[in-house]
């Protein structure tokens, strides 16, 4: 009898283990392995344009003492924070409308429409924005026709935000909507029954309850914007040097992959700390 139980336990363990196996394998092969390689690479040397295994800290000293590195770091962080805040603010009324004012069918259609942009390459979408924002583009021509001189739109912080919101907004709306749809609606009824007006229901009941969705949406927007290269290059005109542009520049000239690895590691560390901080805030008890 005991043997039979042990075999059953073992087979259950093996079954569970088999299903759990892909996760550690994936993490080891596609996260841990490359991460170790990246850390190792940051200590290598480049001699005659050829990567040479070494263990020298010069790459770290060089990058971390460079003013332009910290300027790019600060700029990237500010741009990503602004994009995350903007996308979250725009997404909030959209998600509220989808979750509380639309019927089931309309909700499915609208959420589906927010997924459609992902069918087109992000690069193509950004190139399309160039056509709208450029000197002789549709927006400037329309504004000029009604007598408004809007100045240049491309290569401005405005164009940067347009590109980053294009990238992140659909995702933020979907995350916020899912969070609001899973909200227990009796809480809202209870708030009304206790005499709360619509504004108080929103700020004292709905928003605190969907905080994880709002924070996670903003976190994703921040992560995507922080590492984005396309918008900074094609709508920012390469004028706002972000860390991604700095990586490309560092590799392009002198084949300095080790120094680029230093920048990449700083980016990863920043994103890890941000993610941990945001998640802990999202699920913190009020």
């Amino acid at each position: 009898m005991t043997t039979l139980i042990s075999i059953r336990r073992l087979s259950r363990l093996a079954y569970g283990g088999l299903w759990s196996l892909p996760l550690p394998l994936w993490l080891a092969g596609f996260f841990l392995g490359p991460m170790i390689l990246l850390i190792w690479l940051s200590f290598w040397d480049v001699r005659n344009f050829l990567l040479t295994p070494d263990f020298q800290i010069e790459n770290w000293q060089k990058m971390l003492s460079a003013d332009y590195f910290w300027a790019a770091y600060l700029r990237t962080t500010l741009i990503a924070l602004s994009a995350a805040a903007l996308a979250s603010l725009i997404a909030l009324p959209c998600a509220l409308a989808i979750s509380f004012f639309l019927g089931l069918k309309a909700r499915m259609v609208v959420l589906g429409l927010f997924v459609v942009p992902f069918f087109t390459s992000y690069l193509v979408r950004i190139y399309s924005w160039q056509i709208y924002l450029t000197e002789n583009g549709i927006i400037m021509k329309t504004l000029a026709a009604i007598g408004i001189d809007s100045g240049s739109l491309l290569n401005t912080p405005f164009a940067l935000m347009i590109g980053l919101v294009t990238l992140t907004l659909p995702l933020v709306i979907v995350i916020q909507s899912i969070s609001m749809l899973s909200l227990d609606k009796t809480l809202i009824d209870a708030a009304y029954n206790l005499g709360c007006g619509p504004r108080r229901v929103l700020f004292a009941t709905v928003l605190p309850a969907v905080r994880p969705g709002i924070v996670l949406g903003a976190l994703f927007a921040f992560i995507f914007s922080f590492g984005d290269f396309v918008t900074a290059t094609y709508l920012g005109g390469g004028k706002f040097t972000t860390l991604s542009i700095l990586i490309a520049d560092t590799v392009k000239s002198g084949q300095q992959w080790p120094r680029a690895a230093v920048v990449a590691l700083v980016m990863i560390a920043t994103l890890l700390i941000s993610a941990l901080g945001a998640i802990s805030y999202a699920y913190r008890r009020a």
């Binding site: 460079a66 003013d67 332009y68 300027a71 790019a72 700029r75 390469g238 004028k239 040097t241 542009i245 700095l246 520049d249 560092t250 000239s253 002198g254």
Partner: peptide, 9 residues
């Protein structure tokens, strides 16, 4: 190259 990066920033 470093100067060019600094100039861009």
């Amino acid at each position: 190259n470093d100067f060019w990066s600094a100039y861009k920033s």
